[in-house]
Amino acid sequence: MIHLRPHHLLCLLTYAGKGYSADFVQNYDRIAARLSAGEEIEIVDGPDDICAPLLTEDAPHCRRDSVVERDALAARDVGALLGLEITLGVRLGIDAARLTRLRAGFARGESRLACLGCDWADLCTDVAQGGFAGVRVAAQL
């Protein structure tokens, strides 16, 4: 089971092997492989499996109020795209159909409010505009 906070449901759509540090990228690559293999996600509140390498910092951004707000916006928008409520404890898989639906909504800007102010927003926009080439999460058909 992969534990993710809601806004990471958006981040996984465009993750292409870049991150805050080498440890962060190695960890995210492992998570991307697990997601691609069909491992289920459980929605959590606060820092999750992707955040883990950043939690040793003195003041990790994972704990900021702005990130909590990002989670709320992402939960609402991802839930609307998938037709389900994204709340604490919800479990879901990211199959090819869901991944396609989420990426299409992301590319159309339907789930980007959570991305406002994110340091990675421009990179994610470029990845989406490039047809999601080079992304690391690819659900099995």
Rank of each mutant, 00 (worst) to 15 (best):
Gly83Pro: 13
Ala59Gln: 14
Ala97Trp: 04
Tyr20Trp: 09
Asp65Glu: 15
Ala74Trp: 14
Gly105Gln: 11
Arg98Glu: 00
Leu55Gly: 14
Leu88Thr: 04
Arg76Lys: 15
Val137His: 08
Ile43Gly: 00
Lys18Gln: 11
Gly93Trp: 12
Arg103Glu: 00
Ile86His: 05
Lys18Thr: 14
Val90Asp: 03
Gln140Phe: 09
Leu84Gly: 02
Val25Gly: 06
Asp23Met: 06
Thr56Asp: 14
Val137Ile: 12
Val25Met: 06
Arg108Glu: 15
Gly134Asn: 06
Val25Pro: 02
Leu12Glu: 14
Val78Pro: 02
Ala37Glu: 12
Gln26Ile: 00
Glu110Gln: 13
Leu88Met: 04
Ala139Leu: 00
Pro6Thr: 07
Arg30His: 01
His8Asp: 06
Leu88Ser: 01
Leu9Ala: 02
Leu92Met: 14
Leu9Ser: 01
Leu102His: 08
Gly19Pro: 03
Leu35Val: 10
Thr14Ala: 07
Asp58Phe: 10
Thr87Val: 11
Asn27Gly: 00
Phe106Lys: 09
Asp49Ser: 05
Ala32Tyr: 05
Ala107Tyr: 08
Glu110Ile: 03
Val44Arg: 09
Gly89Arg: 05
Ala107Lys: 10
Arg136Ser: 00
Ile86Met: 07
Val78Cys: 05
Ile50Asp: 07
Cys51Met: 06
Gly89Ala: 00
Arg63Pro: 01
Asp23Ile: 01
Glu85Cys: 01
Thr100His: 13
Arg91Asn: 07
Ala107Met: 03
Arg108Trp: 03
Gln26Trp: 11
Asp126Arg: 12
Phe24Lys: 07
